[in-house]
Design a protein around this nucleic acid. Sequence first.
DNA 1: TTACAAAATGTTATATTATAACAATATAAC
DNA 2: GTTATATTGTTATAATATAACATTTTGTAA
Lengths: 131, 131
Amino acid sequence: MQNLSKNQQIIFDLIDKSPEPLKAYSILFNVQKRGIKAPLQVYRALDKLVEIGKIHKIESRNAFIACQNSSCQISKATAFSICESCEKVTEINNSNLSKYLTGFKDKNGMKYNKYNLEFFGLCKKCISKKS
Amino acid sequence: MQNLSKNQQIIFDLIDKSPEPLKAYSILFNVQKRGIKAPLQVYRALDKLVEIGKIHKIESRNAFIACQNSSCQISKATAFSICESCEKVTEINNSNLSKYLTGFKDKNGMKYNKYNLEFFGLCKKCISKKS
DNA sequence: TTACAAAATGTTATATTATAACAATATAAC
DNA sequence: GTTATATTGTTATAATATAACATTTTGTAA
Ligand SMILES: [Zn+2]
Ligand SMILES: [Zn+2]
Ligand SMILES: [Zn+2]
Ligand SMILES: [Zn+2]
């Protein structure tokens, strides 16, 4: 477990304390006071953080969330629940699900070494608001 | 099953006959000779085609593929295999998988009405190239 | 068949997301 | 200490996507 570089640490801290996924340019805006001025500085740190599994990209939202699951440090098996009303995102940590997907083989004979799953629906809060 | 409008049909035909996922601006370039000149015309057709399940968006690639699975016309339960070497994308049609995921409930009590799953690995061709 | 509503189109401009290219600096390994 | 690797800094630009507004077409029903 390598240490993070300065930019990586700044950006990880921001994402980690955020209650919601952050977008790259929102991150940029927030870290400008700490000396990170250019998009590329943000994207490079994000790439690295994703690579080492400290954060994940929510592909359908182009946003980044800290890993909430100490076990997936390789970032190769990710699952999220996304509320389509309030946009709350939670990382799913369910061993039955991860076992099922990690072991999944399709008829095409392809063996997968990585997956990303995004579930969409309404969170509890948003369901109760509607009733 | 409504008919497609002119622009929707042009763009669907292009995607449907493509052996690989197409990106929006590549689509735009290819349909300019047929009178579609602006990105927004492409994106509007894509949005509609996704909504009615004729095509799907491969989120990790920002690209669009025709539905290869006559049963998922509502576009609410999608799974793909993606070769990280040649970028070949195939829609997975596996009833065991779709049953498992459609029925999946996490401990947060959230009920999902939609999911998207992307598997990554090496396709058969690319595996044999390496050996 | 006319009137109304809904969907689709056309067009210009702009917002958002992401990478190319190149130089400099810091960190780790030998 | 020297070399290799990773990280940073910087400017410019590429790629992806939407806002806003006017017009036209299509479907529906009086
Ligand atoms: Zn994680
Ligand atoms: Zn919600
Ligand atoms: Zn499909
Ligand atoms: Zn391949």
